[in-house]
């Protein structure tokens, strides 16, 4: 890949790259796209070696807060050892890590408690770094001007249903968005700057249904949230869904297949709205190659994401950008250099 060396003398921004579970283990193309896009934007990513599950706020925090704090603190401690702020691509991981970070930074008793356990694995929570969501890194650290400048081609007014997801903005007191939760705009701006249209839809800020351990324990309830959201998106004429959370992505992607089956008598027609992670589309607008953005399927694996076929919509976009989806698919990963 061609790398644009920055002519500025300043050291490139550096982050500890926190993967979580769903992205590396189920939606790896999000990892690929994000690594490459951030690299292209001049960001250096340091892997967090041996990082574990955040642990997920809806489930593990619900069972035992102290354990949740300690394992979360271990992950933050790894980023501290990297000496670089932590960036996560997942709302759930963000929810856990920023909450743990905040609690341990502000509550000495909790910090001592956690460190008394961490010492057994030779780790320590120091509170020396910040926890950030990828959206914050893009919108605030790099900034909209930088994003705008890096865009080389617009995506032709693709109608996107932007799904923020809950923990990206809430609880707002420990989020960087100025307390706005009812009608935040930053994600819409990020989508609009790459030439997409952010389609307004009812209950836009409603939960996808996956969180809080609801998906894992009582799946049909979580899918009923999803059914409603999908109906609202379809009613508003969205061509695709854009997310910045892999768990929302899973719920809205795999969820469509599940909704189509569980609620087949309640929905007017089966859903087939492709779901993209934001960096996949951003990279495309930055002129990057679809193969570097996890946008092209190069395997014959069954039962793997993306579950909703992206080919129809991608074929259309690719055509405008001068690619041919089928052609791209034929190129194998190995032969691409």
């Amino acid at each position: 890949m061609h790398k644009n060396l920055s002519h500025e003398e300043i050291t490139p921004p550096e982050y500890s790259f926190y993967l979580g579970c769903v992205i590396p283990n189920r939606y790896p193309f999000v990892e690929q796209a994000t690594r490459n896009v951030l690299n292209e934007l001049g960001v250096r990513l340091k892997d967090m070696q041996g990082a574990s599950c955040c642990p997920a706020p809806g489930v593990f925090r619900s069972f035992d807060i102290p354990t949740w704090l300690a394992i979360g603190a271990r992950n933050i401690a790894i980023a501290e050892e990297n000496n670089a702020d932590l960036v996560t691509m997942c709302n759930g991981c963000y929810g856990t890590l920023i909450d743990v970070d905040h609690q341990l930074k502000t509550d000495e008793k909790k910090r001592t408690f956690v460190n008394n356990h961490l010492v057994k694995i030779d780790k320590k929570f120091k509170g020396s770094i910040k926890v950030k969501h990828l959206a914050e890194v893009l919108y605030m650290d790099l900034g909209m001007d930088k994003i705008r400048d890096s865009v080389t081609r617009l995506l032709g007014g693709l109608k996107c249903a932007v799904h923020y997801g809950c923990h990206l903005t809430k609880p707002s007191a420990i989020r960087p968005w100025g307390g706005e939760t009812e009608d935040p705009r930053f994600f819409d701006e990020l989508v609009e700057v790459i030439g997409c249209e952010s389609t307004d839809y009812k209950d836009k800020h409603m939960c996808c249904g996956a969180g809080g351990g609801v998906r894992s324990a009582i799946k049909e309830v979580s899918l009923d949230f999803t059914r409603h959201k999908l109906e609202m998106m379809r009613e508003a004429g969205a061509e695709c869904i854009v997310v910045m959370c892999p768990f929302c992505m899973l719920q809205l992607d795999l969820g469509q297949i599940e909704v189509n089956s569980i609620f087949k008598d309640e929905i007017s027609a089966p859903f087939a709205i492709p779901v993209f992670y934001y960096t996949q589309l951003l990279g495309l607008a930055m002129g990057m190659h679809p193969n570097d953005l996890g946008l092209v399927k190069h395997h014959n694996l069954k039962g793997v994401p993306p579950f909703v076929d992206q080919e129809p919509i991608l074929s259309r976009i690719f055509k405008e950008l001068g690619y041919d989806y089928k052609q791209l698919q034929k190129q194998s990963v190995k032969t691409e250099s």
Partner: peptide, 27 residues
């Protein structure tokens, strides 16, 4: 160490198909 672990080789293969290390640098 993962809530959603790689518990099938297909996930390693899937990673590989996107030009990633088949095993992520996590636990």
């Amino acid at each position: 160490g993962h809530g959603v672990p790689i518990n099938d080789k297909k996930w390693n293969d899937l990673r590989e198909s996107y030009d990633l290390d088949p095993v992520p640098p996590t636990v």
